[in-house]
Structure formats: structure tokens, C-alpha cells
Amino acid sequence: MAFVSASNLRKSYDGEPAVVDLDLDIFAGEIFGLLGPNGAGKTTTIKMLATVLAPDSGDAEIGGYSIVSAPREVRRIIGLCPQDIALYEDMSARENLLFFGRMAGLNAREARTRAVECLATVNLDARADERVHRFSGGMKRRVNLAIALVNQPRLLFLDEPTVGVDPQSRARIYDTIRALAGEGTTVLYTTHYIEEAENLCNRVAIIDGGQIIAQDTPRGLHTLLPDTERPTLEDVFLHLTGRTLRDV
């Protein structure tokens, strides 16, 4: 049984379709990658599933709760790590964790405990009391991730969490994600880095024009190019989405 099951999700902005009749199943403990060119509908999909945006039509169930009729219940079991660094840079890493922990409904003691645990998870416990504006881009990304973990979500949305991050921080983020999945957390991961999706994700969906045009394991996707010797996921991606620039 899928932990996330979306059917016919649709969303338009000013009449321009961003996501069109999207169907998706993600299983518990799975790291599911959503790959697509700019403007393909990745972020809109995540926003709808994370109850940030209401779909124009269609629905999705997360852990048995509908994002349309039971968004409050959905919010209790999800964590969102947005594409941007969504935190307060004038506060320390610990203060951010405490604040967002309280916002997620934890009491003060729970928030303190979770702040310590989450900062240790992203290896920032030694810098916990420094203001975030002093951190490098990679460290900020790790705090961004730690905040998404503060309420121990069963489903974690990671929207391009490694943009602008150095290889060391990126490796640390991968380790964290793998460990979380190993503990049973389901992860929906969007990225531009195809190699990243190939190495990290159990399954990958390629989205373009607001629709999923292929989904399988990375190895399974390779079979879409039977005539190519040792195809990479990038070859498959370019084969399916074309080489035309999307943001000109």
C-alpha cells in the first residue's frame, strides 16, 4: 500500500497549467526522486502534496489522510524543506529549531530535545548557538533540512536541498537522508542533479509539462534507451524531455 497516493492532481496559475492530472504512488521508507527541467511542475507538485497550495482538482492521500479534506492531519506527519533557505538568519541554529519546533506543535521541552537531536543529525551541534547569517551556504542548507525534521515527519519533502552546496555538505545531506529512510521516513526529493537522483533515490519520476512521463527505478529507466550502450539517467532524461531550453 502506497504511503503517498496522488490521483488526477491539477493546478494552474492564471490559466497556465502547471500540473496536469498527475498520478503518483510513493511507498513507505522510499526515497522518491522527482526530476524535471525548469518549470516542469516539480515545486508545484510538492507544494500541493505538502498542503501549501490547494489543487484545482484531484486529491492525494498521505498516510491515509486527504490533502484536500484533512490538511491538518497531513501537516502533522509531514516535514517540508523548501527550495529557499526558509529560516531566520538573525537567530542561531538552535533558536530556529526551537521556534519552528514550537510552531510544529511541540511543547518547549520537546522542542529543546528535538533541536539537539536534529542539529546533531546534520552535524551542526557544535555551531548550534551561532547566528545563521554567519554560516556558509552548505551549513544554512543543513539547518534548513534540520528544521524540516524537527517534528519527526513520516514524509519528508526535500525541494532541491543541495543547490549551491559544496561536496562535503552534500555528502552529509545524502547520509542524513539515507539514514532517515532507513528508519522508515518516506522522502520525496526534487533535484536538477540527475546523478544525485541516480545515486540516492529508490525510484525516480521524470516530470515535464506538468505530467509524469516516466517513472521507475534508475536502473529501470535506463531500459528506455535500449539502443544506447551504457545509458545514464541523464541520457534518458534528455531523451524524454528534449534538449530545448525551458527558461529562455
Binding site: T51, I78, P82, A86, Y88, A148
Partner: peptide, 14 residues
Amino acid sequence: RRSGVVQRLKTMGV
């Protein structure tokens, strides 16, 4: 709103 804090707060039930 622009930095995504509002999105995050919304998913936390605020």
C-alpha cells in the same frame, strides 16, 4: 513570504 518561511509555517499548521 518570499523566503519560504510562510510556506514552512503553513505546513506546520500555523
